[in-house]
Design a protein around this nucleic acid. Sequence first.
DNA 1: ACTGATTTGTGCGTATGTATC
DNA 2: TGATACATACGCACAAATCAG
Lengths: 255, 255
Amino acid sequence: MMQDDDAGAPGEALWSRIARRLEADMRAGLYPPGERMPAEALLAERFRINRHTLRRAMASLAERGLVRIEQGRGTFVQEEVIDYAIGNRTRFSQNVASANRLPGHRILRTEEIPADRAVARRLNLRVGAPVILIEVISEADGRPLGYGRHYLPAKRFRGVEAHYRELRSLTQALKRMGVEDYRRFSTRITAQVPTREIAALLKQPVTRPVLQTENVDVDADGRAIEYGITRFASDRVQLLVEPFRDAESGDVIGG
Amino acid sequence: MMQDDDAGAPGEALWSRIARRLEADMRAGLYPPGERMPAEALLAERFRINRHTLRRAMASLAERGLVRIEQGRGTFVQEEVIDYAIGNRTRFSQNVASANRLPGHRILRTEEIPADRAVARRLNLRVGAPVILIEVISEADGRPLGYGRHYLPAKRFRGVEAHYRELRSLTQALKRMGVEDYRRFSTRITAQVPTREIAALLKQPVTRPVLQTENVDVDADGRAIEYGITRFASDRVQLLVEPFRDAESGDVIGG
DNA sequence: ACTGATTTGTGCGTATGTATC
DNA sequence: TGATACATACGCACAAATCAG
């Protein structure tokens, strides 16, 4: 049933008009991505409509993936998610750039530490062997996408962190140290509830999950050169396992 | 000060002895995987130790990944996670069987419905074209691993659900309908907070995230034959993106 | 939106055992 | 022997999160 005081186009339901209005306001920047929208009751009062009507409008936005409604917490403007491709030749900045975002990263710290059991096993080292730890926040348009901890064997790569800071690319830094090529050996993906600390680093609420990837990269000889754990903000990143293409021909492999 | 009634090995800290005791009790089946352990206060009283000492023991178990401590909720015995391999030739039951678990599935329903926009786009159909929906709970040792919704074009695969029910394998059912071979075209991975309904289907709390995968499979000619959305219980499954190997030679591809 | 009960998290104070210099 | 630092253990109190009603 139409609202009596509907001043919009005839034939369009009031909830639909409200939905378009909310969508326009979102695009205009009134409700920035990731932010909580005003409470349903408040918006209903502001538009002078019943809360049911507003909820119908919100439901249509939620269905289209523009907002995310969370009971007891509020309604949040959905952020644009970046496809993060995972493959044999995953490179960091390419993923972000191909989404028309400005890639960047902040290095939190670099340190030489003894390998614990987990790191030693993945890098084929003895427990206690020196490894270089690089902690990075990767960003797109200044918003945190992921928080990564990368371990490299110090014996072989001592000083890599200086190159990395200078060149701002691990691929380039490794190349300067003689690693002409490397590839992703394995990737393990889990979903987790973030610790308060990690949620803060990713600037996301602890109530939203993180996608955790664990990877081992190897050089052309198959030697492990890097072990990394990255936590992605699941509202801003989705992982994409694509059909792998030949480096030269571009043909799909493994069909 | 050592406890007066300490009967343990000398030189070993009390918290360490308690940790070993708890670990043994876990393995003995006293605290089954996924279950909540008794509250810290209760356990401390039972062992006649201070709560701090018990917490030190629990911290060591948590560090080793044997338990998961959640403020306000309790301490939970961590479940063994199954590696679920994702690749060009992902097949369902192989993954579970290779983890020495008994694979199985329950078909919740099969139905012919018109394709909505999302399904139509992925299967290269018109909106409203008939598709077959198959809803499945996949299990290992009787515990739910994932809840999947699979869509197939009805025009080509009408009746596939009967074969599926009989053969209990989508690969076999498709083969019977003339699909000799198919491969994974793309997989999209996100982490989400489950709805109450999905949490119930997966027999997990809503506070634990789910891993959602969206996949499109294509036949040898590259035509889309299946679009699926699967939600995995993140405590019981981790996704594994492995180096892809050639079907014949077994060589790693793309090195 | 509030309440009370339960559970884990944190801080402080005290005391003793152990290792080192 | 003594001084010092650190790990261990206990007791008490309150904060913070969760959950059921």
